[in-house]
Simulated scan of single mutants.
Amino acid sequence: MFEVLFTHVTEKVSLTDEEKDMIKTFFSPKKLRKKQYLLQEGNVCKYLCFVEKGLLRSYNVDEKGEEHMNMFAWEGWWTSDMYSFFSGEKAVINIDAIEDTEFLTINAAAFEEMTLKVPKMDRYFRILFQNSLVTKERRLISAVTHSAEEKYTKLAESNPKLIQRVPQNLIASYLGLAPETLSRIRKNIALRK
């Protein structure tokens, strides 16, 4: 374990072998089976998680009991309820496994210590948080300016493996669409090809 993490980190910052060894001491490897929860709404999020293998989903449930996908996390992705993780307040999202998943966890105290002892990791996370902010901003703009078909087409072009791995009802929820709408869009696209 740690191969995917270090591949991902070294795309943004270079690490020495000594730094890698130190970083390993701050993480704990974990596994989830398909449909098991990593986090449930109302609990405090104690970990920031990095997916080494598998697929997680992050979502919230409205007062009608309908799920609304926030994000998917597959190999090389981080996930957490960031507000809960950093504030200690109760989580407002759920995270569970779409596939059997192997991941690394780090708690808030270890995160602080790691970023102090390995300053390159502080830079790495700053880059990640910047990119995440830009991505969320673009997703918000897309949600209010693009048609349903445009949203799906952009997602399919930018994440073709995600479209293959995630059930269509979850893709529809992520895009803010009814499953029937997504099915119709996919059919229309297939007919045009």
Rank of each mutant, 00 (worst) to 15 (best):
residue 128 L to F: 03
residue 107 N to C: 14
residue 125 F to N: 03
residue 119 P to L: 02
residue 124 Y to V: 06
residue 111 F to I: 07
residue 138 R to C: 05
residue 109 A to R: 15
residue 136 K to H: 07
residue 112 E to Y: 08
residue 129 F to G: 06
residue 135 T to H: 00
residue 110 A to L: 07
residue 128 L to S: 04
residue 110 A to G: 08
residue 121 M to S: 06
residue 124 Y to Q: 02
residue 116 L to H: 12
residue 127 I to A: 01
residue 141 I to G: 10
residue 109 A to F: 15
residue 133 L to E: 05
residue 118 V to S: 07
residue 116 L to A: 15
residue 118 V to T: 14
residue 122 D to H: 04
residue 131 N to E: 10
residue 117 K to T: 13
residue 132 S to Q: 07
residue 107 N to G: 12
residue 137 E to M: 06
residue 116 L to N: 14
residue 119 P to A: 05
residue 140 L to W: 08
residue 135 T to L: 08
residue 122 D to M: 03
residue 142 S to E: 15
residue 142 S to F: 07
residue 129 F to V: 03
residue 113 E to C: 13
residue 107 N to P: 10
residue 131 N to D: 07
residue 114 M to I: 15
residue 142 S to D: 15
residue 138 R to G: 02
residue 130 Q to V: 00
residue 139 R to K: 02
residue 115 T to N: 15
residue 126 R to G: 10
residue 123 R to S: 06
residue 117 K to F: 07
residue 128 L to R: 04
residue 141 I to M: 13
residue 126 R to D: 05
residue 129 F to I: 07
residue 142 S to L: 09
residue 114 M to P: 06
residue 107 N to M: 11
residue 141 I to F: 10
residue 115 T to G: 08
residue 133 L to Q: 07
residue 121 M to H: 08
residue 132 S to G: 13
residue 113 E to Y: 04
residue 138 R to Y: 10
residue 124 Y to D: 03
residue 120 K to Y: 06
residue 131 N to K: 06
residue 141 I to W: 06
residue 140 L to N: 10
residue 110 A to H: 10
residue 118 V to R: 13
residue 139 R to C: 00
residue 132 S to D: 07
residue 138 R to H: 03
residue 133 L to P: 01
residue 128 L to M: 10
residue 137 E to H: 11
residue 117 K to R: 15
residue 134 V to I: 11
residue 138 R to S: 03
residue 108 A to T: 11
residue 128 L to N: 07
residue 125 F to V: 09
residue 109 A to W: 12
residue 121 M to A: 09
residue 122 D to P: 00
residue 111 F to P: 09
residue 107 N to L: 12
residue 112 E to A: 12
residue 138 R to N: 11
residue 131 N to P: 01
residue 127 I to D: 04
residue 114 M to G: 02
residue 123 R to W: 02
residue 121 M to I: 14
residue 141 I to Q: 14
residue 121 M to Y: 11
residue 123 R to H: 08
residue 116 L to S: 15
residue 133 L to G: 01
residue 122 D to R: 09
residue 110 A to I: 05
residue 114 M to Q: 12
residue 141 I to T: 08
residue 139 R to P: 00
residue 116 L to V: 12
residue 123 R to T: 13
residue 117 K to C: 13
residue 138 R to I: 04
residue 108 A to H: 15
residue 116 L to F: 12
residue 133 L to H: 04
residue 114 M to V: 08
residue 113 E to S: 15
residue 119 P to R: 04
residue 110 A to S: 14
residue 110 A to E: 09
residue 118 V to A: 13
residue 108 A to I: 11
residue 121 M to D: 10
residue 137 E to V: 01
residue 140 L to E: 14
residue 112 E to V: 07
residue 126 R to K: 09
residue 115 T to M: 11
residue 108 A to K: 15
residue 135 T to G: 00
residue 113 E to D: 13
residue 114 M to N: 05
residue 126 R to F: 01
residue 130 Q to P: 00
residue 131 N to L: 06
residue 123 R to A: 12
residue 139 R to S: 04
residue 111 F to Y: 15
residue 123 R to C: 05
residue 136 K to L: 11
residue 119 P to D: 04
residue 122 D to Q: 12
residue 137 E to A: 07
residue 138 R to F: 05
residue 133 L to I: 04
residue 139 R to I: 02
residue 108 A to S: 14
residue 133 L to Y: 14
residue 127 I to N: 04
residue 111 F to L: 11
residue 115 T to Y: 10
residue 115 T to C: 12
residue 111 F to C: 07
residue 124 Y to P: 02
residue 140 L to P: 02
residue 108 A to M: 11
residue 129 F to R: 06
residue 135 T to W: 05
residue 128 L to T: 00
